[in-house]
Simulated assay, not measured.
Amino acid sequence: MSDTPFAVALELDADGARPAAPPVSAALSARRLAVRGAAAERFGFTAVTFDDSPLPVADAVARLDAVQRAAFLAPLTSAIGLVPVAHVAYSEPFHVATQLASLDWASNGRAGWIAAASGTAREAAAYGREALSGDHLRRAQEDVIEVARRLWDSWEDDAVIQDAASGRYLDADKLHYIDFEGESFSVKGPLITPRPPQGQLVVVAPAGTAGADVALVTGTDLAEITGAASRARAAGAPLVWAEVEVVLEARGVSATRRLETLGGWTDAGRVRYSGDANGLVALTAGLAASVDGVRLHVAELDVDLEEVGRAVLPALRERIGFRSPRAGETLRDALGLERSVSRYAATAVKEFA
């Protein structure tokens, strides 16, 4: 077991991961989101994540995107990390970086970002763009991550001076152009918001994505996860999380019975667990030997969230030293990631040393 804090994140979208659940982001209920977010924080999950679709969901009466849902929970929570999906294939990179920086300010440094890339022809048509696929889509995704990181660094930490005597709000010498030229777009910068509290938000992406802090790995058993984690680390990933689907024995009903009622498993290539809480504790402890955390996709949020929080997390504290985030910590703190200095400030120091 490493010194890196082990993370337990929870996917909070819709009603759960079961096939019969409403489509991603189809349900809009502020009260439901607030109750679930408060419960996840009270039980001590490291973070909650928010899935999203790059296009409106069919038959949805109303919809809030993932970043908006995370921002809604920001003032209602004080410790848990908030990690929304933001799609990058056709969105404007400058706007994505700005929205995420604003989320970090709203949450006092508890924001992350799942950098998703989907490049279907239907999505491209909706944005008036050409469809991206394969290596082109991967390069676009990595370019957007790089641009976001440069933009978050484009304000030095002490750029805002609020000098009433001189009438200056900021020191213009501490704002920097990023001058990015990529394959599909260029960005001049700087950002229109000050540097986020974390300096750099925690970037989460599928394993193999350059520039991510957390690599998400999939596999159907412990051996596959171990192999995927090893490859992700070899590719430079600082942290690795395993994706796990869960349905627990709950309220006197067996996991098998619940799974039958809920429509079976999804087809996502993830580790699947059904059974009692002790078995999930054992599986997670086994995974902790090769990964730095898990992201749980529970079958039914209104049932499994409570079961995991009540019976699994306390046992993980005893077995592997799991620690819940504390109020006042940033997400980077909770994950054991250092806060970086702006690359532009570091360059200036070298130039004038």
Rank of each mutant, 00 (worst) to 15 (best):
W105V: 03
K174A: 06
G112M: 11
V160A: 01
L170N: 10
R139I: 05
Y127H: 14
E123D: 13
A172R: 15
Q162H: 15
S133M: 07
D135M: 05
S133Y: 06
K174D: 02
A164I: 12
R139C: 01
W105F: 13
A106C: 10
Y177R: 15
G112F: 09
I114D: 04
A159K: 06
K174H: 11
D173G: 15
A165C: 02
G167H: 08
D135N: 06
R150F: 10
T98F: 00
T120H: 02
A121N: 03
L132W: 02
W113F: 09
E146V: 07
D158N: 11
E146D: 13
A121H: 08
L103E: 06
K174M: 02
G128D: 08
N108S: 14
A116M: 12
A125V: 05
K174L: 12
A111Y: 09
A126W: 08
A159V: 04
R149M: 12
R138P: 01
G167P: 05
G119F: 00
G112K: 11
L100T: 06
D163C: 11
W113H: 06
G128L: 04
D153N: 11
V144D: 03
S118E: 14
S107Y: 06
S166C: 10
A106Y: 06
E156Q: 02
A115V: 13
G134W: 00
Q141P: 01
G128F: 05
A97W: 08
E142S: 09
A106D: 02
A159S: 09
L103H: 05
D163N: 14
D135C: 04
G134D: 04
A125Y: 03
T120V: 05
A111G: 11
E142P: 03
E123W: 00
E146Q: 14
G128K: 01
R150W: 12
D173N: 14
R149S: 14
W155K: 03
E130M: 12
R149P: 00
V160D: 02
D171V: 09
I161L: 10
D173I: 01
W152C: 09
W105N: 03
I114V: 14
T98S: 15
R168A: 15
E142R: 08
I161K: 09
V144T: 14
L137I: 03
G109K: 07
S154L: 10
A164M: 14
T120F: 01
A165T: 15
D135Y: 05
R129H: 12
L175E: 03
G134R: 00
H176S: 12
L151P: 05
Y177W: 15
S154P: 03
R129F: 04
D153C: 06
W155S: 09
A121G: 07
V144S: 08
G134M: 01
A97N: 11
I161Y: 07
A115D: 08
Q141C: 11
Q99E: 15
D158G: 05
I145P: 04
E156M: 03
A117M: 05
A111V: 10
S107Q: 04
S118H: 13
E146H: 15
I145S: 09
R138Y: 02
L170I: 12
D158L: 00
G119E: 03
G119L: 02
G112P: 10
A164S: 14
